[in-house]
Design a protein around this nucleic acid. Sequence first.
DNA 1: GCCATGGCTAGTA
DNA 2: GCCATGGCTAGTA
Length: 104
Amino acid sequence: MTPFTERIIGVIGDIPEGKVMTYGQIARQAGSPRAARQVVRILHAMSKKHRLPWHRVLNVRGEIAIQDDESAQLQRFLLEAEGVHVSDDGVVWLEEYQHRPDED
DNA sequence: GCCATGGCTAGTA
DNA sequence: GCCATGGCTAGTA
């Protein structure tokens, strides 16, 4: 596992319950502002093994970005279970729920 | 060669 | 809607 991957995993693992971050924000936080797509990949590949709160990661508009319906439903369920409100079309209000470590 | 992005433009209303 | 991006991974040699 590369240092880059470890940083991404660290950032994702630090998202508190009831909060969300965006792909690009996680990439920036890990020091690679353009690596949003890698965040996608790493989430997919590492979520299980590293017990990552993958469901707390959304796209820049606060949308559930996952394509697969079942997984998208699960993501919504997990978010709502920890108090994050998800609109009918799968959008979370970032103003309220986005986790902002330090600054960003 | 892939991609669960993101930012910019183009086109519609 | 288009396409640059960046790190990983698959596949070839």
